[in-house]
Every structure is written in C-alpha cells, then in structure tokens.
Amino acid sequence: MTQALILEFKKARGRKIWMIVAAMTLVEIIWTLWGTSRMDEHDLAQGWESVLLQYPVINSIIMPVMAAVVASRVCDVEHKGQTLKLLETLMPAGRIFDAKFLFSNLYMITAVMIQIISMVVVGCLKGFAGNPPMDKLACYLLFTGTVNMTLLLLQQILSLQFANQMVSLSVGLLGGLMSIFLFYLPKVFSNFFLWGYYAVLTFVEMDWNPATRIVNYYYISENWSSFILLLGAFTMLYLIGRRLFIRKEI
C-alpha cells in the first residue's frame, strides 16, 4: 500500500494539484475575512459561533466542486495515459483505488486544517470573546472532514468509471448547488442527500430578529445520529465503488 501511495505522489509531481486547492481555500478565507470585517461588541462576543456557521455555508458551495476537481485530477491521468492496463498487472485494482482515495484525501484534510488555523488566527486577531473553543473546532474537523471524504469518494468513483470527466464534474456542480439550497430549507430534507450533510452536521444556529435586525448565534447539540448515518453511507459507497472499479473492464 505504501508503494502505491508513493506512486501517487510521484504521478502528482509537477502537476500542481495543490494550486487549485490552495486557491479555493484562499477564496474561503477571504470570504470569511469579508464577513468578519465589520464586527461590533455584540458580534465579537459570539465571534466563534459566527465563523463556525459561516464556514459550513461556504463549504457547501466550494467543497463539492473542490472534491470533484481533486478526484478528476488524480483519476483522469490514468484515462489520458491509458495506464490502468499496465497498473493493474502490477498491483491489485483495489489497492490503486485505495491509494488514490487516500492521496486525494490529503488535499481535502489539509484544506480543512488551513480553515481551522485561519479561524483561530482571525479570532485571536479580531479579539473574539474567550479562548478558541477547541472541542468545537475538533468537532468541525471531524464533521467537515467526513463529509468531504464521502463526497470525494463519490467523485472518485465517477471519475474512474467515466473517462469523460464532464460527468463527474457536472455531478459535483449539481451537488454544490443543491448543497447551498439545502442550507436554507428545513434540515429534514438534507438528510436524504450526501451534499446536505454540511447543513445537517452544523452545530451552530442563527436567530435573526427582523424587527431589531440583531443576529444571535448559539450552539446546538451535535447531530451524532446523522453522523453515524453518514458513516453508513460512506461504507456502502466505498464497498460498491471499489467493487465497481475492480470489476471494470480496462
């Protein structure tokens, strides 16, 4: 497995996959900075809550597309070079699938880590009330990382199954569009779509008073049952996708 993973690193050399991930993460950070640029005392008092809600909303737009782009970059290289025939004679197809998945995940996890670092830096510089809520940030890492991982898996399956990358990228876009809409619909709908889990697993809610125009953010308990449901979906998708790839004619 280590060798298969090293192989992925070698294939990615000079392809600058990190650049598009970095650009998208940077956009997210700029967006957050924009959102936190004008904060009064009331806003600063609930600064951590507000960024912990703001990031999932932005993630729901950007992350499905980022997953589609990363998966496509990592998988399309085999279609273009018609290298699967050679690779599969050297190692089991399942191992190629796993190595690609682990490798792509590194990008997605790094993106989430950078988000968290940016949250802490912005929070400390702006003077959000209290210390960084480490337990909440850890939850954010776990939830966002898992949703990203599941979407990445779906994108990888599509990118490997269809040589035409238009299919996987269109699905990524449709997912992203659905994801942002689901944020504004009752959460019950979001449970039915993989892309809706950014909304389902958000543990901050917002209360907007139209009369006073004051926004209040507050923590709600983490939705562990939906998280387990997501893990179930991930496992099923993994088993089906891996099998499809192993049985695929090359």
């Binding site: 598009i20 650009a23 998208m24 956009v27 967006w31 924009w34 737009i61 950007i62 597309v65 980022m66 589609a68 782009v69 990363v70 496509s72 970059r73 399309d76 990358q165 238009m166 990228l169 876009l173 992203g176």
Partner: peptide
C-alpha cells in the same frame, strides 16, 4: 490542458463576481 482546473477557476470567478 486539464479538464477540471478551468472549472475550479470558473467557480472562483463566480465568487469574485459576487465581491
């Protein structure tokens, strides 16, 4: 030459449009 990179740029472009 990549298929996916211009799509990523387009998404970033769309967001730049918002700003």
């Amino acid at each position: 030459h990549s298929f996916a990179v211009p799509v990523g740029i387009a998404l970033i472009g769309g967001i730049s449009g918002l700003f």
